Computed example of a mutant assay.
Amino acid sequence: MAVPGTIVTLGGGGFSMSDDGGSAIDDLLLELTGRERPRVCFVPTASGDSVDYGRRFEAAFAGRTDASVLSLFGNSAYDYSDPGVLLEQDLIYVGGGSTANLLAIWRLHGVPEVLREAAAAGTILAGLSAGMNCWFEASSTDSFGPLAPLSDGLGFLPGSACPHYLGEPGRRELYLDWIGSGSLPEGHAADDYTAIVWRDGEIVEAVSERGDRPVAAVSRNGGAGVETELPVRVLG
């Protein structure tokens, strides 16, 4: 069952794919909070709490938010954080990396339960790449080296996910094959620089920072995966 609340799934983009840290999708995320100076927490679990990733987030969101980084590893830059701090946020932003590792570590630390409570209280959940995959029931991932289907998501959103749809070789072709064969349930694909806004498990809209980047619903028909492109609103 889909989780009540707003979730934004980025196929790629945001501050982590911007040369100067600026991002129209990130601006939209802040707008969705409805706060003049929102509390935003970045969760870089999938990258092993990369210090560089955390610093790039802080630079991109400095001055307009109360920004923080949730660390489940603890390192030279960030002490271990109690996941309960996520309940104090207006926006939770999950970074990319290994989807499989993210899910395993989150479950050990009780993060999914906290995220479910935060979403129900009105906190915006968002993420790109692995941070897109995690919310769905299943996904396309390179967590184990070669691209492979993963049926181990949180299930906050229905079906499967495929980020970087055209941005990485093989993503589109394999996703279509897996849905056609039943290796993955029907789902949604988002290219780099695009995002899907969900509310209570239903799509509100698809958006893009660039006009030529697609978002698609992918269904199964006669043993094949079939794409249906969604309307995409170009931001800014």
Rank of each mutant, 00 (worst) to 15 (best):
Gly127Val: 07
Ser140Lys: 11
His164Glu: 06
Ser129Tyr: 01
Pro158Lys: 08
Cys162Ile: 07
Pro158Ala: 08
Leu154Asn: 01
Ser139Pro: 09
Ser129Thr: 07
Gly155Tyr: 06
Cys162Asp: 14
Asn133Asp: 14
Ala138Met: 08
Phe156Gly: 01
Ser151Cys: 13
Ser151Trp: 06
Tyr165Phe: 14
Gly153Ile: 00
Ala138Thr: 07
Thr141Tyr: 00
Gly131Lys: 02
Gly127Pro: 09
Pro149Thr: 13
Thr123Trp: 07
Ser151Ile: 11
Ser160Ala: 14
Phe144Lys: 08
Asp142Gln: 11
Gly159Arg: 01
Glu137Lys: 06
Gly145Val: 09
Ala130Phe: 01
Pro163Tyr: 00
Glu137Thr: 09
Leu125Ala: 07
Leu128Asp: 08
Asn133Leu: 08
Pro163Ile: 00
Pro149Ser: 12
Leu125Asp: 04
Tyr165Asp: 08
Ile124His: 11
Gly131His: 00
Leu128Phe: 12
Glu137Trp: 03
Ser143Ile: 10
Thr123Pro: 10
Ala138Pro: 08
Ala126Val: 02
Gly127Ala: 07
Ala161Val: 12
Leu157Thr: 02
Leu150Thr: 04
Phe136Asp: 00
Pro149Val: 12
Ser143Met: 08
Ile124Gln: 06
Ser139His: 05
Phe144Tyr: 12
Leu147Tyr: 12
Ala130Glu: 00
Ser139Tyr: 05
Ala161Thr: 09
Ser140Asn: 10
Ala138Glu: 00
Gly131Asn: 03
Leu125Trp: 05
Leu154Thr: 05
Asp142Glu: 14
Leu154Pro: 10
Gly131Tyr: 01
Ser143Lys: 05
Tyr165Leu: 11
Phe144Ala: 15
Leu128Ala: 14
Ser140Gln: 14
Asp152Met: 10
Cys134Pro: 01
His164Trp: 02
Pro149Leu: 04
Phe144Ile: 08
Thr123Ser: 14
Pro146Arg: 14
Thr141Lys: 03
Tyr165Thr: 10
Leu150Gln: 13
Pro163His: 02
Ala148Trp: 05
Pro146His: 07
Ser129Phe: 01
Ser129Leu: 01
Thr123His: 09
Pro158Glu: 00
Ser160Tyr: 11
Asp142Asn: 14
Met132Pro: 06
Ser151Thr: 13
Ser143Phe: 12
Ala161His: 10
Ala130Lys: 00
Asn133Val: 04
Ser129Cys: 13
Ser160Arg: 07
Pro146Val: 12
Met132Gln: 14
Ala138Val: 09
Gly153Glu: 00
Gly127Asn: 04
Ser151Gly: 13
Tyr165Pro: 15
Cys134Asp: 03
Leu128His: 08
Ile124Arg: 02
His164Met: 04
Ala148Glu: 15
Leu125Cys: 12
Thr141Gly: 02
Ala126Gln: 01
Phe136Ile: 04
Met132Thr: 11
Leu150Tyr: 11
Pro163Asn: 05
